[in-house]
Structures are given as structure tokens and as C-alpha cells.
Design a protein around this nucleic acid. Sequence first.
DNA 1: CTGAAAGCGCTAACAG
DNA 2: CTGTTAGCGCTTTCAG
Lengths: 338, 338
Amino acid sequence: MVKHRISLKDIARELGVSISTVSRGLRDHPDISDELIVRIKECAGLRNYSPNPMAMGLLKQRTKMIGVIVPDLVTHFFSSVISGIEAVAKEKGYFVIISPSNESYSKEKENIQNLMRARVEGFIVCLSQQTTDYSHFEQIIEAEIPLVFFDRVCLKDKVPTVTADSFEAARGITRHFYENNAHRIAYISGPDHLNISDERRMGYLQGLTDCDLEFRPEYLEKCDLSTTSAAEATQRLLSLPLKPDAIFGINDTVVFSAMKEIRKSGLNVPKDILLVGFTDEFHATVVHPMLTSVMHPTYEMGRVTAGLFFELTENMDLPPKSVELKTKLVIRESSVRQ
Amino acid sequence: MVKHRISLKDIARELGVSISTVSRGLRDHPDISDELIVRIKECAGLRNYSPNPMAMGLLKQRTKMIGVIVPDLVTHFFSSVISGIEAVAKEKGYFVIISPSNESYSKEKENIQNLMRARVEGFIVCLSQQTTDYSHFEQIIEAEIPLVFFDRVCLKDKVPTVTADSFEAARGITRHFYENNAHRIAYISGPDHLNISDERRMGYLQGLTDCDLEFRPEYLEKCDLSTTSAAEATQRLLSLPLKPDAIFGINDTVVFSAMKEIRKSGLNVPKDILLVGFTDEFHATVVHPMLTSVMHPTYEMGRVTAGLFFELTENMDLPPKSVELKTKLVIRESSVRQ
DNA sequence: CTGAAAGCGCTAACAG
DNA sequence: CTGTTAGCGCTTTCAG
């Protein structure tokens, strides 16, 4: 391999033909003689020529890059969604640039700015927890740059979205608790403005109604998704005069924190309190007792999201689709009365 | 914002000057009158001009992109190292393209191919577990493309590396066990060809010597870093006639698996067996008992690695540096006799 | 069937 | 102080 990357010019000189002939030959243009095509391809293969993406980009005004912005990189949830996105992107010859927002609104905005400068062709985004102002996304839409949301979404009337069936999942958890003889069911939610908080809360309320259980506002807790905040929410639940006998949370991380607090206060999962998580992280089977959780089709979610993205790139006038994917409650030890 | 991105040409036309004048004005060239510079910058700012990176790339033959290849995205370890790399990269106006190898040799090679085509300016790599053939890296070196390794490294005589002080850390763990009255100390290692396996094993052996403990080969176990393989290794240790009374593993994930197996077999951590992990993942404080682990300066590792990378880009003839970073044993519940 | 020339957006050397 | 020109690597008319 050499320092100087091989260009069409090099091949043209070597073969004693013009640059445009080589260009055409490489792409099987009917105007070029078969014999010459063979020679050109041979030479290109030998020196393993690959077209300069910047020259192509400049010419075609396309970078073949997609900006993906996720709240964090650490959870299996996002990691797996990204794998799905990457798989589809690769099939289409696209590159994925991953930019973590670390749950910060300003970082999210900044990432978008940077990726715009880098001329990504479009964005796939999962909202940061802090984001309540959507003007940076409005700008993307006005600039007619493709944009798709997954999991945590907004502006559904303008932007295609892929989400999980949070409502049904939360409803199912509530029923599952009820069937395991828990009647004082609590839910630790996330920030109100997030669709995932809202839908899971609605499912929880519907589940209570389904089971003829009364809704008690003190059992509906809230946190900012951080471990400390989740711990505090759990503490509030545990210090109620009538403690809940079942708790589920907006995601596994929150529930891991709850599990720790419950243990600290001398109570036992699942004997005293049943516990269920959301998103089914790898560590659900590492903790003791193993955590019952809602499994998301994460890889699939990535693939579907990328699919919608490419539909959009091909036709920006498409009305925005909203896809909802089915989840599945994986029952382990933490939610079954012994 | 508009569909057509604004170019120097647009500004030039608007101001009735030539393109090169605008170009110079934007970069405070002394030849341009102060008054004109102000007008140019004002106009550019108003229409929020940003230079087309592809045009720049084509001209300067630089993409300002770094390819980062990591075994996985899921652990806090890599996520945090990447944050460190990104921070430095951003300061230098560079972009990071993250490409997970999923611990697969072929995926690692393929990622490198793809990133080469995309004309990244260089690579920052942590070896996949499977990698024993280094020819794809030799090619990068021969092509005089900057390359730096971190954590899992090879070709140290040609490539700058940043690693943790695995030897001292493992030695320290062994001593820590000894001080907590454990004399039958086992170690679950990873594949032999990985430097991190090797150095930790050497540190373990030195630690035994330090404490006047005899090395017993049956206490040196091995796994392929997967949970199942780690579980099997643990089972082998637990079925020994003389079970170990302390175990540490090459990383936390392995040790989480060990913890699960120990519990399954009716034994207690730390009463029957002390346990220590490596890399100090977030979940170390989630499991019960909380896991003692070796904390790596991950963010710092990312920053230092990126630093070496940029030193290299500025001077490819620099002899390869090897930096070793200090770790710290964070003592929690799993390694202290009660 | 093949070559010459223009142009994507930008900088730099060369003229004025 | 400012404009003209060439060229980075490629595709695409337009001419042969």
C-alpha cells in the first residue's frame, strides 16, 4: 500500500486512455468496448482503486453519512438499536456517525450543529431527557433534511417515529402484578414531557382499572432517570404508611436502584415487594433475584428506524409514518411470589 | 434555513466581490481591507455560512475524521474512553467515527476496510478478542496512516499504546485477598494472546510470590470473556476438591457471571468466597454484595490516547510511545470478610 | 467507441 | 488591496 491514494488519473495514464474512459469503464458504460472494460477493471483491481468519497461528495452533494444522536452509549438498549441502524445503513452504503447527547439538551443541539457542518445527509434521533424545546428539530425539518425519531419522540405530525408499545406493556405489567397477588402497585416514572413516561403511565392507569384497583396518587412516583433520583423516589414509596407491594419503573436502571434501596431497608424482593423493569438490559439476569422486565425488539427497532429514514431520503414528501413495535414481558424471579 | 447550502460564491455575488476575496476576508487575510472584512463576515454570519467539508477535504486531502474501533459499545469502559477521545478530537476540529467490532476479527478487518474507503485520517483501536493476526494493522502502518492502540494492544514497537497498569493492579488484588485471610486465590483470565490477560496473570503470580503463597495451576482459569464461558470456568473452580476462597476475573462482566454461579451453588460472597472484578463497571454497585473492582481512569485513557494520536498525525516519524496509566482498587463489600 | 471540457466549493499562486 | 486561474477527483454533457 502506498501513501498516495490511487486515482482515476493514475489508471488512465497507465493504460494510455483518458480519465473519462476509465470512469465509464469502471461502471460498465455501454459505450466502452468489452475488451477495454476488462483491462480497466483489472488495473483498478490490481492497485485496489476506490473512488475518493470527497470528490464524489462534492460532485453529487452527498456524504453518505447519517447522524445518529442517542442519550447514551452505555445501555444495551441503544447499543443494540444502533447495531440495527448500522446493518441497514451498510446495505445502502451509508456510514453512521454516533453522537451521544449524554441526556443533555445543549449537547444534543451542539451535536446537531456539528453534524450539520459535516453535512450528514440526515438524522436519526432519540431525544435527550432534558429536551423540551424542539426548535432545533424544526430547523432540520424546514431545511428538508431527513429526520426520524425512535423511542423518545416528538413532533409526530411532521416526523416519522418508531416506538415500543409502552401503553400495552405497562398495562400488562400491572395485570401481571395483580395476578401475583399484589394490589398496591406503584410506578416510578420519568419526566412528564417524554412520551415513554406518559404512555407507560397511561398503561399503568388502564391496568389498574382493568383489575378494579383504585389509583392512589402517592403510588405514582417520578424521577429524572438518574440512580440517585430513582433511589429517592423509592425511599418515598417505602416510607409511605401503606407501602406498595409491587413496583415497576420506566427502565431497568431505575429499577436496579430501587432494588438496592429495598434491600437496604431490610425488605425482600420478591417476598415483600414485587419488582419489574423496562427494556430488559443484560444485567437483569445478573442481579439477584433476576429481574422481570419488558423486552424490547431493539435490533429490529434500529432496522425499522433506518428503513423509515431511507424511505424518507427517497421521497421527502412522504407523510410521516408512526410505527409501534411489540414488546414482551420476560418473567424472571423478581415478580413472582414464592 | 434553506435547502441549498450557502457557498462562497453566493456571498461573493451578494457583495459584488470575487470569491477569493470572500475566502480571504473570512480568514482575516492582511491583504483585505478591514472594512470589507467586516462586511464579509457580517454577510456570512447572517446566512450562517459554513465551509463545505468535502470541498476542503478534496483540496487538502484531509477528512478530519478518526476511525475508532472498539470491541463493544455496551460497557461503561469503552463508552467512557470514547468520551475522552471525542473531547480531544472536538478540540482539534475532528470527528470520531465509532465502529464496533463485536469482538470479531473479521468485523474488525471489515471496519478498517470501510473506514479506509471513507478516508479517515487515522485509527484508534482496541483489539477484538479474536484478533491474533495483525496484518491489517501492518498495512495501516505501511500506508503511513496514524494508528494508536489502547487497552488491548499489539505491535508495541511500531505503534503508540495506552494501557492500564494491569500487572500492578492484579498484584494488588492478590495482596488484598491475602490481607483478608484468603489463601486459595483463583484468577479467571481471558485469551492468552491478549496483553491484558497476560499482564494480569503475571501480576497475579507476582502477588502470590509476594505473599508466600504457592501457585496452583488449577486456580488459574481461562474464559473467552463471554458470560457462559465465564460461568463454566467458575464451575470448574467450584468443583475442585479444594475450592478457592477468593476469585478475581479479567473484567467485571466475567465476575458478575462468577457471582451468579457461586450463588447458584449455595455459597456466599464474601463469607465463603471473596470476589474482585476489573474495570469497575457501573453495575458493580448494583449487584449484591457490591463488587470490589479495579477502577480505570477511562476518560483519561481516552484523552491520552487521542493525544498520542494527534502527536502522531503531526509527526509520523515519532518513535512509538507506550503510556501506562495508574488504576485504583475500589474496595466494596464483595472482598471483605465480615 | 473515446476524448475534451465544465463544474461541484474551496484555497493558493500569480497578476494586476 | 483585489481579481484571475488552476487544480484537488470525479461525472457528465458535448464533440468528435
